[in-house]
Amino acid sequence: MIRFLDEIDKIIDYILRNDRFIVTSHINPDGDNIGSSIAIYEFIAGLGKDVKYVLDDDYPTNLKFLLDEKIKNKSNDILDRGQTIIALDSGDYSRICIDNDILEKATEIICIDHHMTNGEYSNYKYIDTKASSTCELVYNLIKRYEERFEKMIISEKIATSLYTGLITDTGNFQYSNTEVSSFIMAADLMTRNADKNKVIQNIFQSNTLKFYKILGESLSKMEVIDEKISIIIVTNEMLLKNQVAYDDIDAITPYSRDIEGVELGIFIKEKSVGEIKVSLRSKNYVDCTKIAKAFGGGGHIRASGCTITDVSVDEAREMLIAESKKHI
């Protein structure tokens, strides 16, 4: 049974009443970010609305298969103002990856998200922290539209985009956020011609040799603290040496957690000097959101992130170890 039907119906009715939309999401795009964005973009475009997909960030190589050139816009491409913004998978207003001038002059902001730390920055919102992914919420919204208006809307493109976000946010159905509804959704998308093989090959089977070299280097330097906390570090120097883009190393993250006896995995990524990105993953009892919040971040209980600025990698490491020990 779909939760929050009133909120879903309000968003559907708003979309039907209005004509100009911009779809966007959070910085550092991932599968759920891009998958949900493209799905809602295709849905609204199919209704005959004026809609653009805008994201002021680079796309990971393994997700570019979802993108058509016509929908890859940046804020500089948007000359007018006053559209409705649909912000997907953005747990905080500050993480919405679009120019502030466009945000501030928006007619309305619609928030569709599943993060616990969502600030509820919108009058129109569909926030379900129990959902596996934002793609699951977009799927529910489109299914509700189909039910109300007795129309089949989910195309192969929409189905493939939604399937991408579902399997990336559930770790291909491994993570604790995987529910019965996740499998029901996957089965339905398969009947709608979601290209499962294309998704699997691009997400899990297309890493470059350079990626595996930096993976090997980072794993050789992995450390375990007090048998419960593991840390993997990728520095900017390592990225340059291996000629790997910063946006293409997120697949390393689970290795920090997937060690026997380890409860908390920390993946430290140096994006630039003084800018340290951190991914946190836990297995059973550590609430990653509490650690992330200590550094201005957020996310989910078992998967969160944050950015630490104006410190070195070693300083960030010490800060994270000290905070993490409070929760072990």
Rank of each mutant, 00 (worst) to 15 (best):
Tyr175Pro: 11
Tyr124Gly: 01
Tyr126Ile: 06
Thr191Trp: 07
Asn118Lys: 06
Asp195Ala: 01
Lys151Ile: 04
Lys125Ile: 03
Thr160Leu: 09
Gly165Pro: 12
Lys143Cys: 05
Tyr126Met: 10
Lys198His: 06
Tyr124Ile: 02
Asn193Met: 12
Ile142Pro: 07
Lys157Tyr: 06
Glu179Ile: 02
Ile142Ser: 01
Asn123Lys: 13
Ser133Trp: 14
His115Asp: 10
Asn177Tyr: 13
Asp128Val: 15
Asp188Lys: 05
Glu147Arg: 09
Lys157Val: 10
Asn172Trp: 11
Met190His: 07
Lys157Leu: 08
Tyr175His: 11
Asn177Trp: 14
Asp128Ala: 03
Gly171Met: 06
Glu136His: 10
Arg148Lys: 03
Tyr124Lys: 08
Glu120Pro: 00
Gly119Ile: 07
Ile154Gly: 04
Thr168His: 10
Ser182Cys: 04
Ser132Arg: 09
Tyr126Cys: 05
Lys130Glu: 12
Asn193Trp: 13
Arg148Ile: 12
Lys143Gln: 10
Gly165Ile: 15
Asp188Cys: 01
Thr170Ser: 03
Thr117Phe: 08
Thr129Leu: 04
Met116His: 10
Ile142Trp: 15
Ala187Thr: 14
Lys198Gly: 02
Asn172Asp: 12
Tyr163Asn: 05
Asp188Met: 02
Val138His: 01
Lys157Cys: 01
Asp169Glu: 15
Thr129Val: 15
Glu150Pro: 00
Ala159Ile: 10
Ile154Ser: 02
Val138Pro: 05
Leu137Ser: 00
Ala187Gln: 11
Glu156Cys: 02
Lys151Met: 07
Thr117Ala: 07
Lys196Met: 11
Lys143Met: 12
Asn172Val: 07
Gly171Asn: 13
Phe149His: 15
Glu150Ser: 10
Glu146Tyr: 08
Ala159Thr: 09
Met185Asp: 02
Gly165Glu: 13
Lys130Met: 03
Val199Trp: 12
Asn193Asp: 14
Asn197Ala: 10
Ser176His: 07
Ile167His: 05
Ile142His: 05
Ala186Ile: 11
Tyr139Asn: 00
Phe149Glu: 14
Arg192His: 13
Lys125Glu: 12
Leu137Lys: 01
Gly119Ser: 13
Ile153Ser: 01
Ala194Trp: 15
Gly171Cys: 06
Ser132Ile: 09
Lys151Ser: 01
Ser181Pro: 05
Lys143His: 05
Asn118His: 06
Ser132Ala: 12
Gly171Pro: 11
Leu162Val: 10
Ile154Ala: 03
Arg148Gly: 00
Ile167Ser: 00
Ser181Lys: 15
Leu189His: 09
Leu141Arg: 07
Ile153Asn: 03
Leu162Cys: 02
Ser182Arg: 02
Ser122Asp: 11
Tyr163Val: 07
Ser155Gln: 08
Lys143Ser: 11
Asp128Asn: 14
Asp128Glu: 15
Thr117Ile: 12
Lys196Gln: 10
Thr164Arg: 07
Cys135Ser: 11
Ile158Lys: 03
Ser155Trp: 11
Asn118Asp: 08
Arg192Phe: 06
Ser122Val: 11
Met185Gly: 00
Lys151Gly: 00
Ser181Cys: 08
Ile154Glu: 10
Ser132Glu: 11
Asp128Tyr: 15
Glu136Asn: 07
Glu156Gly: 00
Asn118Cys: 05
Thr134Met: 06
Ile184Cys: 01
Lys130His: 06
Ala186Thr: 12
Thr160Gln: 08
Lys198Cys: 03
Gly171Phe: 14
Tyr121Met: 04
Asp169Ala: 04
Gln174Tyr: 07
Tyr175Leu: 06
Tyr126Glu: 05
Val199Glu: 13
Thr170Trp: 08
Ser161Ala: 13
Leu189Phe: 06
Ile184Pro: 00
Asn140Phe: 09
